[in-house]
Nucleic acid binder design. Sequence first.
DNA 1: TCAGACTATTTTGTTAACAATCATGTCAAC
DNA 2: GTTGACATGATTGTTAACAAAATAGTCTGA
Lengths: 237, 237
Amino acid sequence: MPAAPDSISQIVSPDEIAEEDIVERIFEAVVEQRLPPGTKLSESALCLAFGVGRMRIRRSLLLLSSREVVELHANRGAYVASPTAKQAREVFEARLALEPTIARLAVERAGAEDIANLAAHIKMEHSAHHDDRRLEAIRLSGQFHILLAQIASNAVMLRMMKELVTRTSLIIGIFGGSSVANCRDDDHERIVCAFEARDGQAAADLMTEHLRVIESSLELGKKNRSAVDLVSMFARE
Amino acid sequence: MPAAPDSISQIVSPDEIAEEDIVERIFEAVVEQRLPPGTKLSESALCLAFGVGRMRIRRSLLLLSSREVVELHANRGAYVASPTAKQAREVFEARLALEPTIARLAVERAGAEDIANLAAHIKMEHSAHHDDRRLEAIRLSGQFHILLAQIASNAVMLRMMKELVTRTSLIIGIFGGSSVANCRDDDHERIVCAFEARDGQAAADLMTEHLRVIESSLELGKKNRSAVDLVSMFARE
DNA sequence: TCAGACTATTTTGTTAACAATCATGTCAAC
DNA sequence: GTTGACATGATTGTTAACAAAATAGTCTGA
């Protein structure tokens, strides 16, 4: 019998973490490239890490796999996904279909506060980039695109974008040539300028160009990493 | 010791159904409106229906909820989702962002066989509509949009479209005025004509118009069905 | 020294029993 | 007769033990 059932209206019990949060946390870790492609995600380790039972971890991994951020191999466990070149092209094709529209909608619907947030975000990106805080820079770079989807106020597209941004981090981890950072924040700045000018079409066009630049900076059609990599690595000529 | 481990390369054991198949089956049932919004999906019933254990049903329901086709209420079970008007607008906004691009890509990539399949599909739609096989007509109508995504050869967008088409069926079930069938198959026919003319831009434009017509035929901004419905239903004026 | 088979341990997958919550129906009191 | 509390039944959520698979390690034999 509960002593004081006064305001138990907290949605979740305070000491337990929901699987949605676990999914979100792993998404973040992948975006920041703290979890590189192919990393094994053993159940026991995750149980320890999050302090929850195996069932909850199992459900979280299933959700992650349904978003194609982790691969589930039967009887062998869960691994951070390693997108193929084909999948990489598909992800960018989807982003090119979605994000210009998102940018246009976001411009139409942005309030003064939203634009202020965007400006502040750009500043944070700049300073992170300037101070060589690489992890933070990567995280903010992805977050910018999420922020646009939030301003566009469309939950469906927001969810899609979270998945696509996360997978893009994996793609950059695999196919990103050594020099490639993530997004050039100059591009982001120009997009914010389009916001301040209230020019939706310009924002959409800039976004299209931005995505094209990122994709073309990748070395698709090259290594697959792992199996094939070894073959070519030791090929004699 | 296996007697003949010769070609056990069947991916799944033959007598057991995978949760992916269960998800697919329920998707189909929702598309065909055999599972109306709000239908309770009790675990025991589904266990009986698919002849599998509770765990697999549980996982399937989790996957379905992550696609927003079923709602999971804690301690109360799973129900077929009842999209709100807001969600309906978001779904159509996402479709308007994705499907014109999909149509254009599909035209670019369609082989002779694909176009033949599309023509055959239109015929089936016509005959189903003519013979008043309503269930079949609805199913084919949604299938047309999936077929385009398949021809576009983009797994990411194909998965998104399966979700959006399924949710659209729920939306039509709730907000579709009495007269609204699903898609007018004339629209589909015109899109196939654009394929035969190899005119990607025309296909994209026709798709945009097609989606706008469907959305505008809905009665959004009206009933929510269920709770609110009762209030207004018994309101004295 | 290396290859192959065998054993042991770890890790994943499944099942079943248990606990908790919610819905239904009943009964008493006003 | 209606409202409230109460008890019962059914359904969901969780835990723990068990089974199966895969990996790692060891040993034997060329």
